[in-house]
Amino acid sequence: MLATFLIGLREGLEAALVVGILVAYLSKLGRRDVLPRLWAGVGLAIVLALVIGAVLTFGAYSLTFEAQELLGGTLSLLAVAMVTWMIFWMQRTARTLKRTLEGEVDRALATGGLWALVAIGFVSVAREGVETTLLLWSMVQSFGEAPAALAGALLGLVAAVILGWALARGMLRLDLRVFFGWTGAFLVIVAAGVLAYAIHDLQEAGALPGPFTAAAPIDPATGDVAVGWAAFPFGWAFDLTGSIPPGSALAAILQATVGFMPRMSWLQVVAWVLYVGIVGGIWLRGQLRSRPAARPAPAADAASVPTSPASPVAVPPGPPSVPSPQGEA
């Protein structure tokens, strides 16, 4: 529930910030008359996410076990790809997001097209909506605890809407650079776990060699699939089911946070390590580059001008704060 809550909170806050920027800018321009078009696009994006979730949930029941595993593994890979893209997209475009969105609104108002603002609202929310749907569906499949996982996601989305509204009204101050930094690190770990489970599904479906296929090495002493270094690369890397039962609370917590399962194949472990090492390393380098430079202390001389309370305060680089609908200074 905690993992899906954080996912819903981050993805929902991204969408809330984007919508808040658009609403505030239209209000500043005095064009609140076109807000229904924007909200229509947002509503269509939400409907799309719900439809995709319903199709994935109920459509899989009519498939065979192998087809279900193949579908689950493929969609989990797609979710990992989308999450990875969104992590770096937010990291790269955070500084210019507000200016880019306002430029799109200006062009839409200049052309006067009815569908232009609908499309802006739709695209702004559909990215996070589809990504969240795929990620949550993959996590529900791996956890097997649909009610708790969905409840956590719903609470996260509600909290994101409240935070987005408070930020837009100027009622809350939040260092978005720090927020998206920490949640970005969390999403890297979550995506690595989803990738590991995708490998598990594809191995069960026979699409990848592993412990469920004829490629699995057999322990001559027990006749079971080998475990440990002797099982590399298509056997079990480790088997801790005796110490950590798969259905226990500890197993659920570890899987939700770091993608750990009591029994994992070598392909799963290698995929997890490579993803965290490569993607996490690139993400960390981007975070270090985006850190604000230390500002030198002002010289204490007669020519220095003290900063008055009304002077503007420098904002560290990061995702822009949403201006108040009443305008910005």
Rank of each mutant, 00 (worst) to 15 (best):
L136D: 02
G170D: 06
F88A: 09
S142Y: 08
F180H: 03
A166R: 14
F143D: 13
L135R: 00
L70F: 14
G181L: 11
G144L: 11
L70V: 04
R127Q: 09
R173Q: 15
L97E: 11
M82H: 07
A153Y: 05
V158Y: 06
V130K: 00
A94T: 02
S142C: 14
F179L: 13
A119L: 10
G121N: 09
A108K: 00
A153M: 15
A126V: 05
F179D: 00
L167Q: 06
A151I: 12
P147M: 08
L114S: 11
M82S: 15
K98Y: 05
V158P: 02
D175Q: 15
A166V: 04
S62C: 06
G152F: 02
A79T: 07
T93F: 10
M139D: 02
L114H: 12
A148D: 09
E69A: 14
V178C: 06
V55M: 05
A110R: 15
F88E: 11
L167M: 13
A79E: 01
L75K: 12
E104Q: 12
T64K: 07
L136M: 13
V105C: 11
R92P: 05
Y61H: 14
G164Q: 08
T84G: 09
V80H: 04
S138M: 07
Y61A: 03
T132R: 00
V158R: 01
L157S: 00
L135K: 00
L134W: 04
W89Y: 14
V130P: 03
Q141T: 14
